[in-house]
Amino acid sequence: MRQIAVAVHSDYIPGLRERARLFVHALADRCPDAVLLVGGYWGHMRDVVDSALERGMKVVIFLPIEKEGVQLPERVVVIKTGCEFRCRSVIMVRSADVVAVLGGGVGTMIEAFMAYAMGKPLYVLIDTGASSDRLSQTYPEYFDDRRVLKVVYVSDPVALAEGVCGAGPGVLTSFG
């Protein structure tokens, strides 16, 4: 059972909702036994969770202490981390087999950097209109000189799902 952390904006970006839904639906088709790990239930994280539940996927939400009172769907597994936002991200990324970045701001990018530092296969959706699009321009292959793993950038959410489903621990692949 593959555990996939999904890092995505905690607010809304025009056009990203549909791309997030396409990604989740493609995941459900390609690796239906996967468990999605997300950091909350607001913004586009809510879109990911709702889409996954519609398709019968398992979802684990890692709540930061500041948002423990948020209303959640009944069918999710809830982890009350007792941590603030960035600390809960460490737990979520550490629990993942692979990380998919769907677009976001600094919190989403921190989760991408954590995945890289932990050696987790990392797939980043680009052309989203989010600040995280700049990662591909600034770091076209690797985030630093250590070359921990090659970051895979993809503009198509379906291709992103294919990569995420095919990625194994330490398996580095490249997609268009």
Rank of each mutant, 00 (worst) to 15 (best):
A5F: 07
A5I: 05
A7T: 10
A7M: 14
H9K: 12
H9P: 00
S10A: 15
I13A: 08
I13C: 13
P14N: 13
R17M: 04
R21C: 13
F23A: 03
L27Q: 03
A28D: 02
A28T: 00
D29E: 15
D29R: 14
P32I: 02
D33Q: 14
G40C: 04
G43Q: 06
R46W: 06
D47P: 04
D50F: 05
A52V: 06
R55A: 15
V60L: 02
Q71C: 07
P73E: 08
G82I: 00
G82C: 01
G82Y: 01
F85P: 06
S89R: 09
V90N: 12
V93I: 14
V93D: 11
V93S: 10
R94H: 09
L102D: 04
L102H: 03
M114F: 11
A117V: 02
G119F: 01
V124T: 10
D127Y: 03
D127L: 05
A130Y: 08
S131N: 02
D133E: 07
D133I: 02
L135G: 00
Q137L: 14
Y139I: 00
Y142N: 11
Y142W: 14
D145N: 11
R147S: 08
V148F: 00
Y153E: 13
Y153R: 10
Y153V: 14
S155V: 02
D156M: 06
P157Y: 05
P157R: 08
V158A: 11
A159P: 00
L160F: 06
L160K: 01
E162G: 13
G166K: 11
V171H: 08
G176E: 14
G176S: 11
